[in-house]
């Protein structure tokens, strides 16, 4: 009898030991897979950085070096001068800041009207706005190009800012946020004779600040990453935005050859602010992104 029990215990111990081994093995496999994928994801960044500090001669070796033999920084200087990056930075910053500020004002006012005020046709209007989100942007681009031309906005920053000031998605995002704020607060403020705008400024905006920060970051990143529209309407060298200026700056017009180390230095310069934003404001980006599915 006692022998039988101890046999069972032994079996159980064996089973749990076996289970532990499987568990450890699975964990090892999981980490191995994740680290392999993480390395793959990070490799292009690594390659960009080390290529940007190599001399051209070293970059062109038959068998590339995984770590530069000699670290040089003159590629960065050359990148800044060749692509006129200073100018591109300023242009992009200007377009980004102005369009973000105006866009925030418009978005806040619209979201407030949709979330708090009652008017005829509110739901129909809101549904119509949401429906436009399904239409690919290219469909608007053709006519907007003609419109911008008609308004005489070609080769101006206005053409880069005004057509994209209203984002239905941002209005939607902020409206959802505003709706969560109890209506009692608004009614109490009305009883106290607080004006709508003051209430918006003192109560709604502080409470919805995280969403507003998400919108700001996404909008700024949009200016930083936009390529197609700026190339269409403002392609003069002194009007270019960063991405547009970057793509073709390092290819020799005659030989079609590219000085890759310098190009990689420029890419690193352009990516750096994005990394900073990522490190410090990640949670806001993730919050906005997971609900949009739109890049930039």
């Amino acid at each position: 009898m006692t022998e039988h029990v101890s046999m069972q215990e032994k079996n159980l111990q064996q089973v749990s030991a076996h289970q532990r081994i499987v568990k450890v093995a699975v964990q090892v496999l999981l980490y191995a897979f994740l680290f392999l994928m993480a390395l793959t994801v990070l490799f292009p960044f690594y390659w960009m950085l080390i290529s940007s500090v190599k001399t051209l001669a070293e970059y062109q070796l038959q068998i590339p070096t995984f770590f530069p033999r000699k670290i040089v920084f003159f590629n960065y200087v050359e990148a800044f001068q060749t692509a006129n990056l200073g100018r591109l930075f300023l242009n992009t910053l200007y377009v980004g800041v102005v369009s973000t500020l105006l866009s925030l004002v418009i978005t806040v006012l619209s979201a407030f009207a949709f979330a708090r005020l009652e008017f005829k046709g509110k739901n129909a209007l809101f549904a119509a706005l949401l429906a436009t989100m399904m239409i690919p942007g290219e469909l608007f681009t053709i006519t907007n190009y003609i419109t911008v031309d008609t308004f005489g906005w070609m080769e101006t920053f206005t053409a880069l800012i005004v057509p994209f000031l209203v984002s239905v998605f941002y209005i939607y995002l902020l409206r959802q946020n505003f709706m969560q704020i109890p209506n009692e607060l608004y009614l109490a403020a009305k009883v106290d004779g607080t004006s709508d705008l003051k209430y918006l400024w003192k109560v709604m905006i502080p409470l919805a600040l995280p969403t507003l920060i998400s919108i700001t970051i996404l909008k700024m990143m949009g200016a930083w990453n936009s390529y197609i529209w700026p190339r269409l309407v403002a392609n003069k060298p002194e009007m270019r935005l960063i991405t547009n200026g970057l793509r073709n700056a390092f290819t020799d017009a005659n030989t079609q050859q590219t000085n890759i180390p310098v190009q990689m230095a420029a890419v690193a310069i352009v990516s750096f602010p994005l990394f900073l934003v990522f490190i410090f404001l990640r949670k806001y980006i993730m919050k906005g992104v997971s609900r949009s599915g739109i890049k930039g």
């Binding site: 960009m48 990143m221 970057l246 990522f278």
Partner: peptide
Amino acid sequence: LQTVFFLPYVTNSIAIGMVFSAMFNIIGNN
């Protein structure tokens, strides 16, 4: 690891496309 996997999101598609182009490129400069 979650942070690492999210990193490519905040990059500029055209700029990083240029990095991929460099990685697959087989011709150096003249």
